[in-house]
Amino acid sequence: MATDTAPLIVLDGVNKWFGELHVLRDVHLSIARGEVIVVIGPSGSGKSTLCRAINRLETINGGEIRFDGVPLPAEGKALARLRSEVGMVFQSFNLFAHRTILDNVTLGPLRVRRESPDKARTHALELLERVGIANQADKYPAQLSGGQQQRAAIARALAMNPKAMLFDEPTSALDPEMVGEVLDVMTALARDGMTMVVVTHEMGFARHAAHRVVFMADGQLVEEAAPSEFFANPRSDRAKDFLSKILTH
């Protein structure tokens, strides 16, 4: 049984190939409860794959991933149960297009957790209030702006009371003026002690909300450090090169 001091998520020598392409190379990473990890790196470095491997939307070819002390189940009901404990937010929102915002948020609690409709609805409205879109509850996803859709997607993930949240480039598909509203929600979540793995290009968020920055390149975990240290004194040449390219503008 895992204690509270044991890490929540452990990646142990994880390897993955897409055909010939070696996208994750022997990745070791341990994430504590309540820790906020920001994963950065050039595109194609394996950041998203790493994030998606944690709830097994991507299978791995070698190594092991443990969540809360237990290796990820391979399939079936056990895997579904694990996924219900890990919230995921996608770059393209992926709200269920045929359901209202409220129904998007209550679907998991109703069908996976078997909550009563009243309880699920009350909780969902609280969450929508928290992410600032309670007044959009009865609309369909296509009627909302990108920023509103992404906040609804965060509420949908939170409705399962997850032990951790995965964010796969949550602001990359947004118009610039909507990035802030989503990052605000994420920052509040981090402050409340949620365990978070965030793949992003938002260096501002990494600086002020992350406990640790993980830099990836070519499928390898090249460097990890506290944000202040990483941005001030990157040790690897790859990280220096990357930072010089994104921070000069």
Partner: peptide, 21 residues
């Protein structure tokens, strides 16, 4: 879009539920 099924699986729906709902 494939993202719809991914989002369904990500909240813990089984294959049958994902298909049906």
């Amino acid at each position: 879009p494939p993202g719809q099924a991914e989002a369904a699986r990500a909240i813990g729906l089984t294959f049958g539920q994902t298909l049906r709902l």
